[in-house]
Amino acid sequence: MIDGHKVACWTPFGRERTVSLLVKYMERDVKRGLIDEYILYMNTDDNQVSDREYGYRLAEQHDWIRIIERPERYPGPKQRSTGYFYRSAVDPDTIFVRLDDDIVYLHENAIENLVRARIEMPAPAAVFPIIFNNAICSYFLQACQKVPMEWGEVKPYCMDPNGWASGPFAVKLHELLLSHIEAGTVEDLYLHHDFQLAPGTQFSVSCFASLGSMYAGLPDGPGVLVPDEEESWHTIHRPLATSVPNVVRADSVVSHFSFFTQHPFLNQTDLLDRYRALADKAVA
């Protein structure tokens, strides 16, 4: 718990390859008393037998891990199913922290600082950390002179050609963050201040904190998102409906490994191996 609030982290689960890193940080922060439970929302394809077995094996090994299966029927591609998770996120005393299954690093202060920001600011739909390899976060990092413009300027658009689509740019970002992690200077990458996102600004929801009380009080039913696509609801619909901007917190750092546009470049590097070594140290 943090300041009397239960903290539940959750992941739309799909890949053992990267969740095997993320779960180390969950274990670290459970042991530190920051996280109460970790929920794996199963969102796999039929042929992902070994991935599913891995997820269920984790739940058997750790009493703080819980499995939720997606609905048998949902509209469109599997990415649309994640909006149904929020029907299970209606405890008004719980803060939920969403983590993509390829979040591969969380700074030791990331969860605590993000959750405390969420408590301090109850009005936004979502409070985001500084997500390395997120286009709009890269825009803010460049504005604060943390990421060089010489790598390619990033505009405040979630699918910016450099910040979202460029593999070489993502490699440079990861190398920058890893150099700071290895040197123990991640806090040098904190932003100068929190940044507000104008209502209606689409933002990649790789990681954010939200309130169970918000979902419990939705007009169409507890946890029922309308529209049901979670990124649109949290970053476009809800902020426009409430006229409240979402916020990027200045002092919480996580790393998102890859957008599909970047896979061919990142998979040819040793970056994931370097992140894996750091994750192993987190629970050593």
Results as ranks from 00 to 15, higher is better:
199 P>H: 05
183 A>N: 13
174 H>P: 08
159 M>E: 15
156 P>R: 03
202 Q>N: 05
175 E>F: 04
202 Q>A: 07
182 E>G: 07
178 L>T: 08
160 D>H: 07
173 L>W: 06
196 Q>H: 10
186 V>P: 06
171 V>R: 07
166 S>F: 03
181 I>Y: 06
171 V>F: 03
162 N>M: 15
203 F>D: 00
156 P>G: 01
204 S>A: 10
193 H>S: 14
162 N>G: 07
187 E>G: 06
181 I>D: 01
168 P>D: 04
167 G>M: 09
163 G>Y: 10
176 L>I: 09
166 S>M: 07
165 A>T: 07
162 N>I: 15
165 A>M: 12
203 F>W: 05
164 W>M: 10
180 H>N: 08
184 G>T: 10
164 W>N: 13
162 N>L: 14
184 G>A: 09
185 T>Q: 09
160 D>G: 05
176 L>W: 05
184 G>P: 01
187 E>P: 05
202 Q>M: 10
196 Q>S: 12
200 G>T: 02
200 G>N: 04
202 Q>V: 00
184 G>K: 11
176 L>K: 14
177 L>S: 04
183 A>F: 07
188 D>Y: 04
199 P>E: 08
200 G>Y: 03
160 D>T: 05
177 L>R: 00
204 S>I: 03
160 D>M: 14
183 A>C: 06
185 T>S: 15
163 G>E: 03
170 A>E: 02
